[in-house]
């Protein structure tokens, strides 16, 4: 299986590559349209700011390439947020694949932001490889709005989509590469649905 990790010049590509290597794959890190389009699976990673990431996507000519992918695509953390319509972070327009917006998490006493650590999941789609009661690792200050495409949620002040699915596009707000067994199950389910 050919697995491409989209290189948008930011973030956690190291940890994500290694997670797939642990599953016996040899991922290709690339920003080349043809390489991405010909892969069997595509990973859109990302940590950092949405504005910077969208600039990188446009600058590398990948906006329509990513939107048009037909194979299973997995967005992780910021990569999932980029699949939504727009982000409150710097008021940026995103890829517009999944309906909904990305908004800032508000801190409150006893509820710090970033939402950082292991939160318990409520899972509505066992096809994700996840199950209700799993703990997975989150590290984010912005979150997508909950909606019909959520297949797993966590709570941090409000319901946060932890995993989403629309057609061939899957997203994880949590970090499957750093979520122990539950994360590995999720990645395996993405590779072999």
């Amino acid at each position: 299986m050919k697995l491409a990790i989209v290189d948008i010049g930011c973030g956690n590509i190291g940890a994500i590559s290694i997670a797939f290597e642990r599953l016996g794959l040899d991922p290709i890190v690339s920003s080349d349209a043809a390489t991405i389009q010909s892969a069997d699976r595509v990973i859109l990673p990302g940590v950092g700011a949405a504005g910077h990431a969208m600039e990188q996507i446009r600058w590398r000519g990948l906006f329509f390439v990513l939107r048009g992918l037909k194979q299973p695509v997995l967005g992780i953390c910021l990569g999932m947020q980029l699949m939504f319509e727009a982000s409150e972070e710097a008021g940026v327009h995103c890829l517009g694949i999944i309906p909904g917006r990305v908004t800032k998490l508000e801190p409150a006493p006893g509820r710090p932001v970033p939402h950082m650590g292991w939160s318990r999941l409520d899972v509505s789609d066992p096809g994700t490889g996840l199950k209700t009661g799993d703990y997975v690792y989150f590290a984010h200050s912005y979150a997508c709005t909950d909606g019909p495409h959520s297949v797993a949620t966590a709570v941090h002040g409000r319901a946060i989509p932890a995993a989403v699915r629309k057609d061939n596009f899957v997203g994880a707000q949590f970090h499957p590469e750093r979520s122990g067994d539950a994360g590995a199950r999720f990645l395996k389910a993405f590779l072999d649905p």
Binding site: V47, A49, P114, A139
Partner: peptide, 8 residues
């Protein structure tokens, strides 16, 4: 924080 995000 600007380049990698606060969570890093």
């Amino acid at each position: 924080a600007r380049d990698f995000g606060s969570q890093c």
